[in-house]
């Protein structure tokens, strides 16, 4: 399978009044053609920053990629000039934003906003652009595309606007689509429709998708692989099956436990506490303070990556042989 994207040891920092925030602290992952990768985590865990870094859309200053590489189709885009990067944005990599109510310019018609990316990057006539725009409106399921192109965003509902945003992102046939919380701002019924739309589009166009979300329900529907981020690091990654059925990191388990399920009678257990301050991230595992299985070692050294399977990796000391004894003893006690 063709590898579309490879992120290696990515570090991103933000310089603010109060000091330097280490938002992303060494992130590695990859993405193949036609695959859907979900990046999951609480707000502030660095998942959005990571996706913005891939697009090179981190506001600079204060943000900066301090280390690492982002290899897109064999080339490291962190070395690209702004001009070269512009030629990729919207053409090869597209992005969908969280809130469809604010992602569209209120003073321009839908048609203008839909076609301008096409006109910017491809040499085509107005008529061709319009034809393509209508085709895209059809693809995302908006009726009467011809008329609706002339309308303004405020004349559309939230769900419709998100469909338009998706159409805008896909109009240049990108290889990679980054969707940052694409359903969070929508009603539950609309959410399901939009997720359905993602699957349809992927089938038809073969686009790779990075889905950023904190909602595991969304992930369960469309992801192939899952990355769990916490405090700027990937703490666990694996296929959807592996993460959902054999979660290894206590944080991942906590996340799964805080999702209501129909198949068990288990009580919902929220994860207590708040994530660490990334002005001065802890040198050990950042989850230690909230972890029900915290050991002395966790505070002192960041866990070595344990490989569960070819696709399943976890950064947790509980995978160490010596911890297994402790776990066994604990399960005997209770």
């Amino acid at each position: 399978m063709e590898r579309i994207l490879e992120v290696n040891d990515l570090h991103v920092t933000f310089t603010t009044y109060g000091g330097t925030v280490q938002a992303v602290r060494g992130v590695d992952f990859h993405l193949d053609r036609g695959e859907t990768l979900a990046i999951v985590g609480e707000s502030g865990c660095g998942k959005s920053v990571t996706s913005n870094a891939i697009m090179r859309l981190i506001p600079s200053p204060p943000g900066k990629i301090t280390k690492g590489s982002i290899v897109f189709k064999g080339e490291d885009v962190t070395t690209y000039s702004e001009k070269k990067m512009r030629a990729i944005r919207g053409v090869d990599i597209s992005m969908i934003f969280q809130d469809p109510m604010t992602a569209l310019n209120p003073t321009l018609t839908i048609g203008t906003q839909l076609m301008e990316g096409l006109k910017e990057h491809k040499k085509i006539t107005r008529a061709q652009a319009k034809e393509k725009a209508i085709e895209m409106m059809d693809l995302v399921g908006i009726p009467n595309p011809e008329e609706r192109l002339k309308q303004y965003p405020h004349q559309f509902s939230g769900g419709m606007r998100q469909r338009i945003v998706i159409a805008i992102a896909l109009i240049c046939d990108p290889d990679l689509l980054i969707a940052d919380e694409p359903t969070t701002a929508l009603d539950v019924t609309i959410q399901a429709q939009i997720l359905e739309l993602f699957s349809t589009i992927q089938e038809r166009t073969g686009v790779s998708i990075i889905l950023i979300t904190h909602d595991l329900g969304v992930v369960a529907k469309i992801a192939d692989r899952i990355i769990v981020m916490y405090a700027g690091k990937i703490i666990e990654s694996g296929t959807k099956r592996e993460i959902f059925y054999q979660p290894k990191h206590p944080y991942t388990r906590g996340l799964l436990n805080s999702v209501p399920r129909l198949d068990t009678k288990e009580e919902l257990k929220p994860i207590v506490g708040t994530p660490p301050d990334l002005f001065s991230p802890p040198k050990g595992c950042p989850f230690t303070a909230r972890c029900p299985y915290a050991m002395e070692v966790c505070d002192k050294v960041y866990p070595a990556q344990a490989t569960i399977s070819d696709t399943h990796h976890v950064d947790c000391w509980l995978q160490d042989e010596r911890a297994k004894w402790l776990l066994a003893a604990k399960s005997l006690q209770t």
Binding site: R89, G90, E116
Partner: peptide, 19 residues
């Protein structure tokens, strides 16, 4: 957000500002 979106479309800074 719509400015971010315009950037994500790969528009030039000139177009982003004036359009």
């Amino acid at each position: 957000d719509y400015i971010k979106m315009a950037k994500a479309k790969g528009l030039s800074p000139w177009k982003i500002v004036f359009k």
